[in-house]
Nucleic acid binder design. Structure first.
Length: 596
RNA sequence: GCCGAGGUAGCUCAGCGGUAGAGCAAACGGCUCAUAAUCGUUAGGUCGCGGGUUCGAAUCCCGCCUUCGGCACCA
């Protein structure tokens, strides 16, 4: 029975280009997972988009003298291009500035409000004297009332570590332009998280398949749940769907509230775009569906506490949940697993765009193959702990592992067979050593499959590489290039054995290395796409505004996570090297770029 | 300050109660079909420090040193 798998990927924030740490955390792992489940024949829905509301984008816009939408448009395109070039196979990668997203967000807000899960409260907020815009706590600086430190932030003093309220700072000033902020009363809406406290605690406690750090961190967090503000004094965001706020442009829904709703709204958009508007319910209102969320560790509580709280509150729904009779009493699905990564550092230092400690995705992809980056970010990525990216390691992993073990196995096999046979050779009776190798390698469908299903990507790729290494050892022992001079039939059998293994390894590597796996698929003489092209599509909504969606037609792809036939006599296509070996010089060149 | 994670071979990391592991780097040897790729052998660690629990501890507990995160209106 095929399963319905939702792959919900963190939404990259559109205030600038994304660096390789971001795609290491959520992008590559989620794509491996989605591609694996498609090969398994499951119904995969992989959604995300650019997160385009919030203060940082308005600040970036002010700086350049353009609108927030201009900033969002620019970086949504840049980020979408990066993900496309990395081969991240979203079913729908959209944006949070669509009409559809606004409608779904407002339905969530309105439903939670009507059910009493949203509270109203007057609070004292800081506003910029020059622009009138709200100043988040961290954008207010001043002297710490506790220790006297002069550059304390509104939320916390970096000197004494105490948590602060910006109103208490002595001589407060705006971090943006140094002016004195104005404090005034403003009404805010708060999500009543304590109302879900017991249900969340019971639910999280039961999730024993979560990574331990995710579960324990979340359980710790919900010990002290407070209502959480879900509106901001901003003109850039989803409007509050209440009559008294209909015409006001000074208060919007908080970016984090709408961003997590993106998982649902993008699923609904996917269904609409393909002309099956109710199809999203097969994932969201199907108790058998499994939802997997991928993100960095900084986002855990939004996905294990706040979003689940919102889903519990929404239940079987408002407008969207209730629309179809057959689903009317079916609540939206909670996450099945929340796969959080740690952080990637850069030559030993934390990524920092402002200090130039950064490597953008488009920079790497402009000079290196996507599969090389994908390989590094998987085998050496921050899956369980922070890991370090260095150019020296990148070159070494590429040359000594990817090229030497897997690339070279494919290359020596295909060039030999293409030259000597031109097609899959007819084997004689398999020797003990031949069938032992084949069955050992084919065991990867179970072992690697189990690791992938439980999101242990590093171990899965290590196992695939180990199996590729076994075939290299076999070749060294059998030496078919010698045997062929005296016994062509035996050489054919040896090469057939190797080809059988390479054919299975092709499947194993497809989730990790889609571009090279597609090439190998073709060199082996197979037809169709095992990892085909992605595409951008433009969609126009009722307002007339259009937006771009990264998607693809994955249903026609041909690979399956099982031993596949390798027909004797199938003509090979002329092979070329799958990967490029990198010159050691690039290490110095890249380090020079960082310094300059 | 509070909470949490890490400190294992020169390097990057895995192992997380039962005789210390991998890859790379190093040394030597085999092979030469293949992107000077590959295969084999060797060498290399009192698993941060100090206590404790246990027949037995990188693995559990306590303390310390050290690095790094989170601490809720930055996403």
């Amino acid at each position: 029975m095929p399963e319905h798998i939702l792959v919900a990927v963190a939404w990259p924030y559109a205030n600038g280009p994304r660096h390789i740490g971001h795609v290491a955390g959520f992008g590559v792992p989620s794509d491996i997972f989605a591609r694996y489940h498609r090969l398994r024949g499951n119904h995969v829905l992989m959604v995300s988009g650019t997160d385009e509301h919030g203060t940082p984008i308005t600040l970036a816009a002010d700086k350049e003298g353009i609108t927030a939408r201009d900033i969002a448009d620019r970086y949504s395109k840049v980020i979408g291009d990066d993900l496309f070039n990395l081969g991240l196979s979203y079913d729908t990668f959209t944006r949070t500035t669509t009409e559809n997203h606004y409608a779904v967000t407002q339905d969530l807000f309105k439903t939670l409000y009507d059910k009493g899960y949203i509270l109203r409260q007057e609070t004292l907020g800081a506003f910029s004297a020059t622009t009138g815009r709200t100043l988040p706590d961290r954008y207010v600086e001043g002297t710490c009332p506790i220790c006297g430190y002069k550059d304390a932030r509104g939320d916390q003093c970096d000197n004494c570590g105490n948590q602060l309220d910006p109103v208490d700072l002595i001589d407060p000033r705006s971090k943006v332009d140094g002016t004195t902020p104005i404090f005034k009363e403003t009404e805010h809406f708060l999500l009543d998280l304590p109302a879900f406290g017991e249900r969340l605690r019971a639910w999280i406690s039961a999730q024993e398949h979560w990574r331990p750090n995710v579960r324990s961190f979340s359980l710790n967090f919900i010990k002290e749940l407070k209502p959480r503000s879900i509106t901001r004094d901003l003109d850039w965001g989803v409007p509050i769907p209440l009559p008294e706020y209909a015409d006001r442009d000074d208060k919007k829904i908080y970016v984090w509230f709408d961003a997590v709703i993106g998982y649902l709204s993008a699923s609904i958009e996917w269904a609409n775009n393909r002309g099956t508007p109710e199809a999203w319910r097969d994932w969201w209102q199907n108790p058998e569906a499994r939802h997997y969320y991928f993100m960095g560790k900084d986002n855990i509580v939004f996905h294990t506490v706040i979003w689940p709280g919102m889903l519990l509150g929404y239940g079987a729904g408002g407008v969207y949940g209730q629309a179809v009779e057959a689903y009317r009493d079916t609540p939206l699905q909670l996450p099945y697993n929340v796969v959080s990564s740690e952080f990637l550092t850069m030559e030993g230092k934390k990524f920092s765009s402002s200090r130039g400690v950064v490597i953008y995705v488009h920079e790497v992809l402009s000079r290196y193959d996507a599969d090389s980056l994908r390989y590094f970010l998987t085998i050496a990525g921050p899956e369980n702990q922070d890991t370090d990216f260095t150019w020296a390691e990148f070159v070494r992993r590429n040359n000594d592992e990817l090229v030497a073990t897997w690339g070279n196995l494919v290359n020596r096999t295909l060039t030999n067979v293409y030259k000597n046979f031109g097609s899959i050779p007819q084997p004689g009776a398999l020797a003990e050593s031949d069938s032992a190798l084949i069955s050992h390698v084919e065991g990867g469908f179970a072992s690697i499959g189990d690791l992938l299903a439980t999101a242990r990507f590093k171990a899965a790729l290590t196992e695939a590489m180990r199996l590729a290494g076994l075939v290299n050892i076999y070749l060294s022992e059998q030496e078919p290039w010698k045997v062929i001079k005296v016994d062509r039939d035996r050489a054919a059998t040896i090469w057939y054995t190797v080809l059988r293994c390479v054919n299975s390894l092709r499947i194993y590597f497809t989730p990790f290395l889609p571009f090279s796996s597609q090439k190998l698929h073709e060199y082996l003489g197979h037809d169709g796409y095992i990892a085909g092209p992605l595409e951008f599509k433009e969609y126009t909504e009722a307002s007339g505004r259009s937006h771009r969606v990264l998607t693809g037609d994955y249903t026609g792809w041909v690979g399956h996570w099982e031993v596949s036939e390798l027909p004797v006599g199938q003509a090979l296509r002329e092979p070329k090297a799958l990967f490029k070996k990198l010159d050691e010089k690039v290490i110095e060149e890249e380090l020079a770029r960082l310094g300059g």
